Simulated assay, not measured.
Amino acid sequence: MKSSLVIKAGLILSIVVMTVTGAYAQETKAQKKAEAAAKIKSLIEARKYVFVAQSALPMSGRVRQITPDYHLTVTADSIVSYLPYFGRAFTAVYGATKSPLDFKTKSFDYTNTPRKKGGWEIAIKPKDQDVQSMNLTVFDDGYGSLQVTSNSRQPISFNGYIQEIKERKKKR
């Protein structure tokens, strides 16, 4: 009788501990998600972030997984695009050896509109490039999709994520 009372008390105690631990874990998970969303929001509002491409989706062909070296860096005064291109070109530049999506510009239009279900729609229109528009859809969790439309090439899309710009150490 005494041993069954001890077993029941131990069982009740373990249920209480699991319930409290589970509730705490859910609170911390929700807090981490809210902090991540706030960080992404601050990066986008400050216009100081990097879109790191993970996969490329050309109009024709298959999805290509790419290395994390490819990126689109956005700052308040410039755009640096280092992205690959897979697709059909309607006109070609003679002697071109680098990707048409590998450029730097300080002349561009930038609009940022919040989405109804969270996240942002960002439209970037470089003025001095073959690229007509770059539409970036960013979700609260930091993942996003970039659609690039060009004047003389098929459109291409990229999936990836947003992160803050890492400062590079200067060599002495």
Rank of each mutant, 00 (worst) to 15 (best):
Q26W: 13
V17A: 13
G22M: 15
F103R: 00
T19M: 15
Q129W: 11
S107H: 15
S157V: 11
K106W: 15
V93N: 02
S55F: 10
D109T: 06
A89S: 13
V138A: 14
V63T: 14
T113L: 12
M134A: 04
A92Q: 15
D77S: 07
F139N: 07
K169F: 14
M18Q: 12
P68A: 07
T97E: 11
I40E: 00
A46V: 01
S145R: 14
I15S: 11
V6E: 14
D140N: 10
D69M: 07
K29F: 03
D141K: 13
M1W: 06
N159G: 04
L83M: 14
E27D: 09
L11S: 08
Q129G: 10
A56Q: 00
V6T: 10
I156A: 00
T113M: 09
R172E: 14
I79P: 05
F139V: 05
K171H: 12
V50P: 03
E45Y: 03
S152T: 05
V148W: 10
G61L: 10
S145Q: 14
I40K: 01
G10V: 02
T67Q: 07
P84C: 06
T75Q: 12
V131T: 14
Q65M: 11
Q54D: 15
S78V: 13
K39P: 00
R62Q: 05
K8F: 12
I15L: 09
S152V: 03
K48R: 08
F103A: 01
L13I: 06
E27I: 01
K106F: 13
T137K: 15
G144T: 09
A56M: 01
G22N: 05
S107G: 04
K98L: 01
S145C: 05
S4K: 12
F86T: 03
G160K: 09
Y82N: 13
M59V: 09
